[in-house]
């Protein structure tokens, strides 16, 4: 009986390890083989010459450049909102909060990080409805709203990594500042934050990756299939993940399908690079504490 159980677990272990490896490599190979041929200048800019497209002299038809710009502006807005707020909350949680408040806020952050992204999108949508009924009848979904909602979605990531980066600082370094007569804030600002900097940065990068890939939030807060480059914060916009979703459901020609594959590959490369950067930063942080 015991022997059989052992054997079963061994089988399960190798099967699941192999199966996962197989599934991920299938996914990558399939995407690369179908997406590689489609990556060229025409993918990004359509038929428009690239210089005109970059300088926004001519509108772009068929390229993913507007979607790329949309995604970058979304990520930028979300970061502007969530990174300062997240770092500040992380500092408060790690250094200032009393036990009682800490457990309460901790639960709030858990709740926020567990909330499905579509519910966050629904929240944004409802907020616009409420604004319309009350004092801003012209309010509609657009870039600013989507940026805020995505910022809210990635906020817990920034808070958690800031908090754990600060808590991970060894005690002898933590006590150094106060022993030299620094006040609490001077200690945080001049000693702890620089030490935790790389850890915080890797958290911010992870949050950016999450902001770039999320589709459900923007689905409800103003993404559309053809909008061009957004002119203002209230405009509708395009985004890479939404374009992939849209092309999967409603591609009309083999060219569009190929573009879908290429777009998916571009997005994967983008998030993959961000992930790599975050991992390398994390590693360098760990190495730093180990050598001292």
């Amino acid at each position: 009986m015991q022997k059989t159980l052992d054997r079963l677990l061994t089988c399960l272990a190798w099967l699941s390890g192999g199966g996962t490896l197989l599934a991920v490599s299938l996914l990558l190979v399939f995407l690369a083989s179908h997406g590689m041929p489609g990556i060229d200048a025409a993918l990004f800019f359509g038929d428009t010459p690239w210089l005109d497209a970059l300088l926004a002299r001519k509108p772009i038809f068929g390229g993913i450049w507007p979607a790329l710009v949309g995604t970058f502006s979304l990520v930028f807005l979300a970061s502007v909102f969530s990174i300062p707020l997240g770092i500040a909350s992380g500092i408060y949680l790690a250094e200032y909060a009393s036990d009682h408040r800490h457990s309460l806020l901790d639960f709030m952050v858990d709740l926020l990080s567990g909330t499905p992204s579509i519910v966050m999108g629904l929240f944004g949508f409802t907020a616009i409805l409420a604004l319309r009924k009350t004092f801003l009848p012209g309010a509609r979904t657009g870039l600013l709203l989507a940026g805020l909602c995505i910022g809210l979605l990635v906020l817990p990531y920034v808070i958690r990594t800031t908090e754990s980066a600060l808590e991970g600082i060894p005690d002898h370094l933590r006590l150094l500042g106060p022993s030299l007569g620094l006040t609490r804030w001077q200690n945080i600002n001049k000693v702890l934050l620089p030490l935790a900097g790389r850890g915080i940065l890797s958290g911010a990068i992870l949050a950016v990756g999450r902001a770039a890939e999320d589709t459900a939030v923007i689905l409800l807060t103003g993404v559309v299939a053809h909008a061009g480059i957004p002119g203002s914060l209230a405009d509708k916009f395009e985004a890479l993940p939404f374009r992939i979703y849209y092309l999967a459901a409603e591609h009309r020609s083999p060219q569009e399908l190929e573009q879908g594959f290429a777009t998916a590959l571009v997005l994967l490369l983008l998030t993959g690079l961000l992930f790599l950067a975050a991992v390398l930063l994390q590693r360098s942080v760990e190495r730093r504490w180990k050598t001292r």
């Binding site: 991920v24 995407l31 990756g209 979703y245 999967a248 879908g260 997005l267 998030t271 993959g272």
Partner: peptide
């Protein structure tokens, strides 16, 4: 590999599944 899987966008999983 498992860590890397967290960074693959959901929409990419969906897209590949639709066609594979």
């Amino acid at each position: 590999l498992v860590h890397f899987m967290t960074s693959i966008p959901t929409v990419v999983y969906g897209f590949v599944s639709v066609f594979l």
